[in-house]
Design a protein around this nucleic acid. Structure first.
Lengths: 188, 188
DNA sequence: AGGGCCATGTAATAGGTTACATGATTGC
DNA sequence: GCAATCATGTAACCTATTACATGGCCCT
């Protein structure tokens, strides 16, 4: 119950078309909330009907025209009231944890490759986050250094630091998993 | 596409009724995969029709009879083939991260309470995990000590260690978030 | 000529949530 | 007497995924 809100945040950061939003949901905001273009177009249409966002036709040369959406007053209000709600206890879905527990009833060693593959994905993501941090927040430290604070920037940065901490934790844990799995020889 | 598999793993660890499964999904396996009783009964019925699980009527005194489910050969095979699939890139849904980025367009300081509440939830979960670890895996170390390995036990333990690492990471990150939010005075 | 990107959608299906429903027993 | 726990389900609705569909431009 919050794709709408993720879209509002993304459009406040920068107005854009459904297509552009779909691309953002493949990177940036998409690391914290996934959505496909089909979903986005559907929700965007409803949000327009409800007056949360306003569309502006932007003619383009050499490309199809696009509808650039931006947040309307009603959308801003909807976001604000969502931010003030105390809800959501985070529902989790860790396929890999289920697989690891399931491996006890199959062949634990057969999971090694799969876990290694996941480890690689997390290593790549970490590298990607760190590169983004160097690019967008160079020379900044968590505690700031007397510079006047820019909420949008700093909050984006703290979320990014969360992503970095998550990837580091995952890599360390997956190493633990690999050590554990390797204690069980193949073909058991 | 894996509630079935989570149920199979849980039933392999210990056969049980739909009700009992629903309770397990509130703790233990539920920390990695959430499901309500309605969902479980529906899926369990389908799994029975498909021959993945077998039900046994267990008469009880002082309580309604229950159907105890256990994994059938077809279910075991289905689990095995799922374990050998290389899939799933983990779809994420971090409401809080979206909220934090959204707070830049509202009142960052108003989020402090919400984040503190989340921090408390994670602190409680960590304490709960650590208590479970002391109870179920006393005196064990990640690298074992020459004892013969029991796959089911050790894999449960490594998953639990993942939960512990996750909660610790979250607590540290939420502290970082709080420090950042507090840099923006109230009523901005 | 073919593949990839830009741009927007519809349709069918699967999965998940919320609300409603029933009924017995145990403990306060 | 009332609430909680055990036990099982149905129905309606909302969300999300997968497949299908179109069409022009740009680059190799």
């Amino acid at each position: 119950m919050a794709l709408e809100h993720a879209i509002l945040v993304s459009l406040l950061e920068k107005p854009g078309s459904g297509y552009e939003l779909a691309r953002r949901f493949e990177r940036s905001i998409g690391y914290f909330w996934t959505a496909t273009h089909q979903q986005i177009y559907r929700v965007l249409k409803r949000m327009e009907t409800d007056g949360w966002v306003a569309a502006r036709e932007v003619p383009q040369q050499g490309r199809p025209d696009k509808k650039e959406y931006s947040v309307a007053d009603l959308g801003q209000a909807a976001l604000s009231s969502w931010l003030h709600e105390p809800i959501e206890p985070e529902s989790v879905r860790h396929d890999l944890a289920v697989k690891i527990r399931g491996a006890a009833f199959d062949d634990p060693a057969a999971l090694v490759r799969e876990v290694e593959r996941h480890r690689q994905v997390h290593t790549d993501r970490l590298a990607h986050y760190l590169a983004g941090e160097e690019r967008d927040f160079p020379g900044e430290y968590p505690a700031g250094a007397g510079v006047e604070p820019d909420a949008e920037r700093e909050l984006q940065h703290v979320v990014l630091r969360g992503g970095i901490a998550y990837e580091r934790m995952m890599i360390a844990w997956l190493d633990d998993v690999l050590t554990t799995l390797r204690r069980f020889g193949p073909g058991r």
